[in-house]
Design a protein around this nucleic acid. Sequence first.
DNA 1: TATTGTTATACTCTATAACTATA
DNA 2: TATAGTTATAGAGTATAACAATA
Lengths: 150, 150
Amino acid sequence: MVASRSEPRPALPADFAPRLRLATMRLARLLRQHGDPGISQTLISALATVARTGPVTLGRLAELESVQPPSMTRIVAKLEELDLVVRRADVADRRVAWVTVTPEAESLLAEVRIRRNELLASRLANLDGRDLDALEAALPALERLAGVLA
Amino acid sequence: MVASRSEPRPALPADFAPRLRLATMRLARLLRQHGDPGISQTLISALATVARTGPVTLGRLAELESVQPPSMTRIVAKLEELDLVVRRADVADRRVAWVTVTPEAESLLAEVRIRRNELLASRLANLDGRDLDALEAALPALERLAGVLA
DNA sequence: TATTGTTATACTCTATAACTATA
DNA sequence: TATAGTTATAGAGTATAACAATA
């Protein structure tokens, strides 16, 4: 341990943020385009969040998914059309809309989980062991950076 | 070294690909939404690629950016409107469109490079040293995974 | 005929502004 | 008045299919 108290680690290289940004956005685009037949990542992500949290209000769901309420209104409307969620007004405050997953959603999520990583898995298969080790070690940091664990 | 020849490292956990996918797409959305005032990430990315490669055909640029040719036609048209690229027909094969950056593009890229990592840098500042070390170590792997280095 | 790029069209995702219903 | 959510509208980004120009 040679770092001083005021700077416990060397600063990141100046090109670190740009490179991370570019790599992240490229990879996200590849994943988005590959897609899951029949249901978009946006819908899956919102659905998975409802499944994970249990019943949740539309506004809170918008927060959790980092979208504006009107966007979530449309997402939930589509999920409801697909019989993947149910929306019910709160009994005490009828402005509030509670969103809950249906049994269909649970099985869809299980099914999708199996298929949806094909592209990523196939790309991961092209990396060597050191790259995989590095990615595995960095995943929690990446999740914190993305706010997934927050 | 205890791994067998047929399996040189332990397999990635089953939830690795889904978690990496979610984290990547969340982070990309945050970055996309933060945006760069006045010019989108899509345009910047294509422009930066032209600047990096030098004169490039529209079709090759579409390949490099992982979009279909019609999408690149639109991207280049916008960049041309903004006087950030010039498009010229190849003299020998007039079907081919060569795309080149303008001086305005060079200064824009320099300017943008300074500002555009604000969000990412501010989020990185919330991570501890171990997370930063892990991310730094994993960046080349992530770039290979995203095909940035390919 | 084959290739390069464009036009036409449509879809998803997202936002902001204005609105409704309820508190 | 304030809050939760919706509707209206617009814009960016992307795709596929059909086309035009050129080789």
